[in-house]
């Protein structure tokens, strides 16, 4: 099929716009990655390639701080993603396979609430909440807040996947003498797996990346990677921050790519 000048679908200028869009999106990330390899104490001058700032992240004067922050970030992300994915899977089953019911709209509103409320408002509200019940801020408060706002991110791919699975599979299973529980574990769950994995990954990234809510509920002394980075950046951008940012950036991109390919793999075909 030739795309000639008569192709009514194509407009001059739209391709350059798309390229501009991608350049704006990627240029800062590429630039930071390149400068993280700069063998110089100053961020302004380019003095050749080296991995010294990556080494600095692990062994330098701030390494202890980053190690603790990384441990906090990753353990919180793993636990929050696991719990919120479980909750989201159960909720999606009720919403997609539970027929019509009165509280359905309300439930959906509640599940998507963290997406509608501005993040700064959620942050303030959560801080006030823990304060009002006299809960000391720290690791636990961050974890609980993360579990809550990760639920909608896990829920979306899971429920989308479940919407796409014909209910005749479960009916066929029950027609062939499976109980409801067996139809769920033997048929629905295996078919759901790509949706659950991509929901888990999204929840993980969202937790790992969160700054605003964490910043409000973390309390004194407990840092995650984003809050530690923010603290450093306030004093000016340093090369070791670019190195750590590049690593975090790589983690996110790898996870999202996995999620993309998992959700693309259609095990119903």
């Amino acid at each position: 099929m030739a795309r000639g000048k008569n192709d009514i679908k194509s407009f001059p200028g739209f391709l350059p716009m798309t390229i501009l869009c991608l350049v704006i999106l990627y240029a800062p990330l590429v630039v930071v990655t390149i400068y993280s390899l700069n063998d110089s104490n100053s961020i302004t001058n380019w003095e050749g390639i080296s991995f010294r700032w990556y080494a600095d992240v692990f062994t330098g004067p701030e390494s202890e701080k980053f190690k603790i922050a990384a441990w906090n970030s990753f353990t919180i992300a793993i636990i929050a993603a696991t719990v919120s994915t479980t909750i989201a899977t159960l909720a999606a089953t009720a919403m997609v396979r539970g027929g019509r019911f009165r509280l359905r709209t309300v439930s959906f509103g509640l599940i998507s609430l963290p997406l509608m409320v501005p993040e700064i408002v959620t942050a303030v509200a959560t801080l006030i909440f823990f304060n009002s019940i006299g809960f000391t801020r720290g690791y636990l408060t961050i974890l609980m807040a993360h579990i809550a706002f990760c639920i909608p991110f896990a829920y979306m791919p899971i429920s989308a996947r479940m919407q796409g699975i014909e209910d005749s599979y479960e009916q066929a299973a029950m027609d062939l003498y499976a109980t409801k529980r067996q139809a769920f574990t033997k048929i629905l769950m295996p078919l759901m797996l790509p949706g659950i994995i991509s929901g888990y990954i999204l929840a993980f990234i969202i937790s790992l990346d969160d700054f605003i809510i964490t910043n409000f509920v973390k309390g004194a002394g407990v840092e995650t990677l984003p809050t530690a980075i923010f603290g450093s950046v306030k004093q000016g951008i340093k090369p070791n921050i670019m190195a750590i940012s590049t690593m975090l950036l790589a983690v996110s991109i790898i996870m999202v790519t996995i999620s993309y390919f998992v959700s693309k793999s259609d095990n119903t075909k």
């Binding site: 014909e166 005749s168 009916q171 066929a172 078919l191 075909k269």
Partner: peptide, 19 residues
């Protein structure tokens, strides 16, 4: 319930378990 009935169904779209 369907799993207690000694009848079986051939579904319109077959509903063969894809996995």
């Amino acid at each position: 319930p369907p799993n207690k009935r000694p009848v079986n169904t051939v579904f319109q779209n077959y509903a063969l378990f894809p996995h």
